[in-house]
C-alpha cells in the first residue's frame, strides 16, 4: 500500500435532513414542502424530473443513516421510488437505468447488467441468470412516493 498525503474530506456534507427538509443546495432549497410525519421527505420539484428517466436523491433513514433512492417520473406524471443500490452490481446506479414496461408493469433496467425490476414493487422480473452480490437481496426496496403541490415526496423509514 502506498502512503497517501491528502486533505481529508468533509463528506458527507450536504445530506438534506428529512426531518426539516431544509436542503442545503440551491435547487432543492426552492422546495418549500414541509416535513411530514412518518419519514416523508420532499425531494425535488416534479418538473426537475425528466419523464421516463430517473434521478438519485440523498435521504436519511429513520436512524439517521444516509440513504440513496432512485426516483422516477413516468409519462402520466406518477412518481416511483426504489433503492438506488443495484444489488447485482453493488453500485448506486439504479436511477440511471432505462425505464420501460413489461406488459402493463412499469420497469427499470439496471444500467450495469440489465436486470429488470418492477418500479412499483421493486421485484426483480428478470435476473439474466445472475445472482446478487454477497449480502444483498434479489429485489429492490420500493418506497411510497407521491407529488404534492408539484413537489415529489418519498417516504423512507
Amino acid at each position: 500500500m502506498i502512503p497517501l498525503a491528502a486533505a481529508p474530506t468533509d463528506r458527507p456534507a450536504e445530506i438534506p435532513d428529512p426531518e426539516d427538509t431544509v436542503t442545503t443546495t440551491q435547487d432543492a432549497a426552492d422546495v418549500a414542502a414541509d416535513a411530514t410525519a412518518g419519514g416523508w421527505a420532499a425531494v425535488c420539484r416534479l418538473d426537475q424530473l425528466v419523464p421516463e428517466r430517473g434521478a438519485a436523491a440523498l435521504l436519511r433513514r429513520a436512524d439517521g443513516a444516509p440513504f440513496q433512492v432512485a426516483v422516477f417520473r413516468l409519462l402520466d406524471d406518477s412518481v416511483h421510488a426504489v433503492q438506488q443500490l443495484d444489488p447485482y452490481a453493488a453500485a448506486n446506479v439504479m436511477s440511471r437505468g432505462i425505464v420501460g414496461t413489461r406488459g402493463e408493469e412499469p420497469t427499470v433496467a439496471s444500467p450495469v447488467y440489465k436486470q429488470v425490476f418492477a418500479l412499483r414493487t421493486g421485484e426483480c422480473l428478470e435476473s439474466g441468470g445472475k445472482t446478487p452480490k454477497a449480502g444483498l437481496g434479489a429485489h429492490l426496496e420500493a418506497f411510497p412516493a407521491e407529488v404534492r403541490d408539484g413537489v415529489v415526496h418519498v417516504q423512507v423509514t
Binding site: R11, A28, A55, A57, L58, Q68, L85
Partner: peptide, 16 residues
C-alpha cells in the same frame, strides 16, 4: 442540469 449527483444535492459526491 441532469449531470448532478443527487437531485436534492447535485454537487454532493456519492458517499459510498
Amino acid at each position: 442540469a441532469r449531470f448532478g449527483s443527487f437531485v436534492n444535492a447535485p454537487t454532493t459526491p456519492d458517499p459510498s
